[in-house]
Design a protein around this nucleic acid. Structure first.
Length: 107
DNA sequence: TCCGTGACGCGAT
DNA sequence: CATCGCGCCACGG
């Protein structure tokens, strides 16, 4: 019963998905934060895997550090559009993290 | 088992 | 501010 009860990645992704699912409309979170909140401060890349298997998760609310849209091509354009629809504002191609960064339940 | 890959992060140049 | 390089972590061939 410790924090490292992972053993196999399965629960790791489950934790990350839970974090992502908890991001409210109009807010965004970075890959690094997803990993951190899930208990894996250095597994930003694994956050990507959890999105690969998104299935109903608000994947568009997950961006790269600094509010950058990491998803390339049309997908990235789609993500930006979805975020703007939720009221998220941008500044030079980046999400204004100072205004939309999800800091946890303290809303 | 070794190697390459990826919607990453961050410091250095 | 734009790029590059290195570190991290789990997966698939």
């Amino acid at each position: 019963m410790r924090e490292r009860e992972v053993g196999r990645g399965e629960s790791m992704f489950a934790l990350m998905r839970a974090v992502i699912a908890g991001v409210p409309r109009g807010k965004v979170i970075t890959y690094g934060q997803v990993a951190e909140k899930a208990g894996f401060p250095k597994a930003a890349r694994q956050a990507v895997w959890s999105l690969r298997d998104a299935k109903g998760l608000p994947w568009h609310r997950v961006v790269a550090a600094g509010g950058r849209i990491a998803l390339p091509g049309e997908k990235g354009l789609d993500q930006r559009l979805r975020l703007e629809m939720e009221g998220v504002t941008f500044r030079g191609g980046r999400v204004r993290m100072d205004a939309h960064e999800w800091k946890g339940k303290a809303r």
